[in-house]
Amino acid sequence: MRNKKVIVGFSGGADSAAAALILKNKGYEVLGVTFDFFGDEPLLKKASALAKKIGIRHECIKRQLEFREKVIKPFISEYLRGYTPNPCVRCDAVMKFRGLMAYANEKEAEFIATGHYLRLEKRHGQVQIKTSADSRKDQSYYLYTLDQEYLSRLIFPLSAFQSKDAVRAFLEKEGIALPKSEESQGICFIPDGNYARFIKKETPLMPEGRFRDRFGKILGSHNGFYHYTVGQKRGVPAISGKKYVVTALRPEINEVILGEESDLYQKKIFLKELHFIDGSLYSGEIQFKVCRWGYLYQGTLHLSGDHRGYLECEEAVRAPMPGQSAVFYDRDTLLGGGIIEYK
């Protein structure tokens, strides 16, 4: 091995600790890096103390302003356009992996590593991402924007582990005991999951808007379209005894369109910013998900130029939300993806 220096994304949790320790045990020179997105001093101290216990060098890099400009502000902007953006995809692409690569270049490290439960496999000269054996830990959905430049230098040390319990058992065997904590399943900068309250704090007061059906009939009023997303039932009023679901948003006039559950199902999904990990732009039969834990659908991808296209789905998909990602697979291989858009 020409260069055994590796930069590890080090959050101070069990996964990143195990990743760093595995690489150290294999003889790599390990440097753990914690990106400070929020000025969370207790988290930074925890990560620093754990790195010392493992016996690796550690650095914290302040990125609060950049995180706000590149992740939080685009999230707000898209939300106010009636989209339901996925900031985790954007964060992984423009903050975490780009940051690790830049730091690796600065420190003349050949490799970068993270605590994802994924596998890498080289085939036909291309590095492929394989999904996790434990579907609960599979995060491949968020990594479809990576390309060969990143994958050729990336290591996933936890590829051999089947579960979080196995990782904890490994750490305990190595003398590293960490308290169990609940894993975050939502957006890191909205820890309570209340997107509407977050948007309301960040934007001017919005006037009262209208609920309408798809024919234009007024069904009632609401206090801002950003309280709703396509497919939502909770918080939607029953009118004249009839239950409704959100089928569309019209942010430019602050209106929420209500309809029936059957109105949500679509067999054609339009996409922008298409990207394939191998650098190609593929069209034809493909498998895809519209959320991390979602069902693996079958469909056909058609290209329409300018990295846009559309999916023709074999079975109708419930509420594919503009702003979310449709991510492509070939069984257990991540292929790429694109962002769902209005049409």
Results as ranks from 00 to 15, higher is better:
residue 35 F to S: 01
residue 231 G to S: 13
residue 215 F to H: 11
residue 303 L to G: 11
residue 128 Q to P: 00
residue 34 T to Q: 06
residue 207 P to T: 08
residue 96 K to T: 03
residue 140 S to A: 15
residue 277 I to D: 01
residue 275 H to P: 04
residue 105 N to W: 11
residue 286 I to A: 10
residue 173 K to Y: 05
residue 48 S to R: 14
residue 30 V to T: 03
residue 176 I to C: 07
residue 230 V to F: 05
residue 300 T to G: 03
residue 178 L to S: 03
residue 204 P to W: 10
residue 36 D to H: 06
residue 141 Y to G: 02
residue 25 N to A: 10
residue 88 C to V: 06
residue 228 Y to K: 06
residue 155 I to L: 15
residue 78 E to A: 12
residue 123 R to A: 05
residue 96 K to L: 10
residue 104 A to S: 13
residue 201 K to T: 11
residue 13 G to K: 11
residue 191 P to A: 11
residue 183 E to G: 14
residue 134 D to S: 14
residue 117 Y to D: 05
residue 128 Q to A: 05
residue 23 L to S: 04
residue 45 K to D: 15
residue 282 Y to F: 15
residue 23 L to N: 03
residue 184 S to I: 08
residue 217 K to R: 14
residue 9 G to F: 00
residue 160 A to Y: 01
residue 192 D to P: 07
residue 11 S to I: 07
residue 236 V to D: 04
residue 273 E to R: 13
residue 123 R to F: 06
residue 174 E to T: 04
residue 256 V to C: 06
residue 300 T to P: 01
residue 198 F to I: 11
residue 309 G to C: 08
residue 256 V to Y: 03
residue 171 L to D: 03
residue 338 G to E: 03
residue 257 I to L: 15
residue 180 K to W: 14
residue 39 G to T: 07
residue 6 V to Y: 00
residue 42 P to C: 10
residue 272 K to Y: 01
residue 61 I to T: 12
residue 87 P to I: 04
residue 262 S to L: 10
residue 69 E to S: 14
residue 243 K to M: 10
residue 107 K to C: 09
residue 296 L to Q: 12
residue 285 E to C: 04
residue 229 T to H: 12
residue 155 I to P: 01
residue 299 G to Y: 03
residue 169 A to M: 08
residue 180 K to H: 14
residue 215 F to R: 13
residue 269 I to D: 00
residue 315 E to N: 12
residue 98 R to T: 11
residue 145 T to F: 06
residue 213 D to Q: 10
residue 113 A to R: 01
residue 139 Q to A: 13
residue 126 Q to F: 13
residue 330 D to E: 14
residue 247 T to A: 11
residue 238 A to M: 14
residue 13 G to C: 08
residue 160 A to M: 09
residue 64 Q to E: 15
residue 190 I to F: 07
residue 173 K to G: 07
residue 286 I to H: 08
residue 186 G to H: 12
residue 195 Y to T: 15
residue 96 K to G: 02
residue 249 L to C: 05
residue 170 F to M: 09
residue 20 A to N: 05
residue 190 I to M: 09
residue 184 S to E: 09
residue 164 K to C: 02
residue 228 Y to H: 06
residue 137 K to N: 13
residue 29 E to N: 09
residue 68 R to D: 11
residue 65 L to C: 08
residue 127 V to E: 07
residue 250 R to Y: 05
residue 293 W to T: 13
residue 335 L to M: 14
residue 12 G to L: 04
residue 244 Y to E: 01
residue 242 K to V: 15
residue 131 T to V: 13
residue 228 Y to F: 15
residue 13 G to Y: 07
residue 342 Y to I: 08
residue 24 K to S: 07
residue 103 Y to D: 05
residue 246 V to L: 10
